[in-house]
Amino acid sequence: MRLVLLGAPGSGKGTQAAQIVSRLKIAHLSTGEMLRAAVASKSPIGHVVESIMERGELVSDEIVVGIVAERLHGEDVKTGYVLDGFPRTVSQAVALDKVLADRGENLDAAVELKVVANDLIDRIMARASQAKAKGGKERADDNPETFALRLQAYEAQTAPLVDYYRSKSVLRSIDGMQAADAVAAAIRNAIGA
């Protein structure tokens, strides 16, 4: 099964992707993790990505599409995958459709986690507090100012994907404000898995 998870920052995409991956035994392709790995590598592209992320901006389509297209060649994606955080723009979705068509594949579903934007800041601050409590490092983008910029970017650039995938009849909308287990159950029902 090939899935895309859509939702605003803090909507629970990572949490739900982990549950889907565990249940279906498919790969979790998180562009956020791929981008953070690029930053950690200290490569030239990693430095560019780091600067962009610290400003709360979105990484360019060209960079992200290239990273994802390369990742789709991995052995672990042959049985399926969940794309978490990609595509972020309609042009990325079109590029993904082309990459998939070249592989003789298509998406099974695009799952939208619908959330209330004003409640997301609480989730982000809780995530940062939990990371600190566990002795981990807070993500650079988990602060109110950067989060507000990420949310604005989502509304302007990513929200139009809902209409794009609805027009392709693959959109499944889920109430993402429910408890995590209820969201997971709704996703199972929506994708039939």
Rank of each mutant, 00 (worst) to 15 (best):
90 V>L: 10
178 Q>W: 00
142 D>Y: 10
85 G>W: 07
82 V>R: 05
109 A>D: 13
112 E>A: 12
91 S>Y: 11
165 Y>K: 05
86 F>P: 08
110 A>V: 08
91 S>L: 07
143 N>I: 05
133 A>D: 11
96 L>I: 07
156 A>F: 15
165 Y>N: 01
151 L>P: 08
169 S>P: 06
103 R>N: 00
124 I>W: 10
92 Q>T: 02
113 L>V: 03
140 A>R: 14
119 D>A: 09
177 M>V: 06
123 R>S: 08
138 E>D: 01
135 G>R: 00
153 A>V: 11
125 M>H: 13
161 L>V: 15
112 E>R: 05
148 A>P: 07
88 R>I: 09
160 P>F: 05
135 G>C: 01
161 L>H: 14
90 V>T: 07
115 V>A: 10
118 N>G: 12
160 P>N: 01
104 G>E: 06
171 L>Q: 11
163 D>Q: 13
164 Y>H: 15
159 A>G: 00
86 F>Q: 09
115 V>P: 12
123 R>N: 04
155 E>N: 12
93 A>E: 08
95 A>Q: 14
156 A>Y: 07
92 Q>R: 09
127 R>L: 13
111 V>A: 01
136 G>T: 08
168 K>F: 04
112 E>F: 07
170 V>A: 06
84 D>H: 10
130 Q>S: 15
140 A>C: 08
89 T>V: 04
176 G>H: 02
160 P>M: 01
130 Q>C: 06
96 L>E: 08
134 K>D: 04
173 S>P: 10
93 A>I: 10
166 R>V: 13
152 Q>H: 09
117 A>D: 10
161 L>G: 14
174 I>C: 01
172 R>S: 04
103 R>F: 10
94 V>W: 06
132 K>I: 05
101 A>Q: 15
88 R>P: 07
91 S>R: 04
169 S>G: 04
